[in-house]
């Protein structure tokens, strides 16, 4: 009974891929299983895990948010410049979170109220936010922040890095929100059958907005960690962040058409990406090959998921 349930779980494909990769890497590189490296993997995956949480909420409603990378840049630049101008660290963090939630709000508003396709909306806002960050910062990176801020990126408590702790807290809260609250419940329902949800008198606008704002919020947190860790905010920061988050979510069997998926799956997907990148660096694989291999692994994970789906439908 339990075996079948596990096999049918949407996280099956990505879990198998993760376990397989883990075993493979520990054979290929003796350094892989060292304590330092395992913590290293967690540290490097922490931002992706946090990003993939918000992305899951968006994708289960049948939407997508490509602007995540740009929101992170806007938020990072704003925090950095505030701190540079002597604003209190906490205030700067709050401002950074508010701006990223606001960016999510803009996306949500355009998608839900004006009912434009999320792909196009966020493609446009990706460019807009990026442009805004470049204009605001004059294209130059901003460096050097107070120690209390850097602590969020490079500090550690009981030898567990702070970003890992933040990611853990985010995961616990989001799993609860996703499984147990109206937001998660209705987000899935909206992605499953929008018309049916409308016919049940549920305020789609409200929940869709919330979903995009949650995504903005998690992006803001990821931006804090990245900025603190690098001790700098780059206006040209990592634009691929958004796509990596989408990849992590999709790998876990979450369908881009919405209605299915889970936060846990997305977390496993992010870990898979983390292990891949880490393992390949250990094996001296050049970054071009890394991109290539990651693409192949995404295909394999999605393929396993398809086999699982076909199997469970036949039953």
């Amino acid at each position: 009974m339990k075996k079948i349930n596990f096999f049918r779980a949407p996280e099956f494909g990505v879990s198998v891929a993760l376990i397989g990769l883990f075993i493979l890497m520990s054979f290929l590189s003796p350094l892989f299983l060292s304590g330092y490296n395992l913590i290293n993997i967690l540290l490097q995956s922490s931002t992706y895990m946090i990003l993939s949480i918000g992305m899951t909420f968006v994708i289960v409603t049948g939407g997508i948010d490509l602007s995540v990378g740009s929101i992170a840049v806007v938020s990072g630049i704003l925090m950095a410049s505030l701190m540079k101008n002597g604003v209190n660290v906490y205030l700067a963090i709050i401002a950074g979170l508010i701006i990223s939630i606001f960016c999510g709000f803009i996306n949500g508003f355009l998608v839900s109220k004006i009912s434009l396709p999320s792909f196009i909306v966020t493609l446009a806002t990706m460019s807009i936010f990026q442009g805004a960050a470049l204009i605001f910062s004059g294209g130059l990176p901003i460096y050097g922040f107070p120690k209390s801020f850097s602590f969020l990126g490079i500090g550690s408590v009981l030898s567990v890095p702070v970003p890992v702790i933040i990611a853990l807290i985010c995961i616990i809260i989001s799993v609860f929100v996703f499984k147990k609250t109206k937001i998660g419940h209705y987000a899935l329902a909206i992605g499953d059958n929008r018309q049916a949800v409308k016919m049940c008198g549920i305020n789609i606008f409200k929940y869709e907005m919330l979903v995009y704002m949650i995504n903005g919020f998690t992006t803001g947190i990821a931006a804090i960690i990245t900025t603190a860790r690098l001790n700098s905010a780059e206006p040209l920061g990592s634009m691929s962040m958004g796509l990596d988050a989408v990849a992590a979510v999709v790998m876990s069997g979450t369908s881009l058409s919405g209605g299915t998926g889970s936060v846990t799956g997305a977390i496993i997907g992010s870990l898979l990406m983390g292990v891949l990148r880490n393992g390949m660096t250990l094996l001296n694989v050049q970054s071009y090959y890394q991109n290539l291999i990651i693409g192949i692994v995404i295909l394999i994970a999605v393929f396993i998921d398809k086999i699982r789906n076909d199997y469970s439908y036949k039953k």
Partner: peptide, 22 residues
Amino acid sequence: VAAPSEGDASAQLNYLETMLIK
């Protein structure tokens, strides 16, 4: 080795952290 792109500062840091254990 090198970072995947010119602007990806955090990926570069990840690289160096992994290189440390080698």
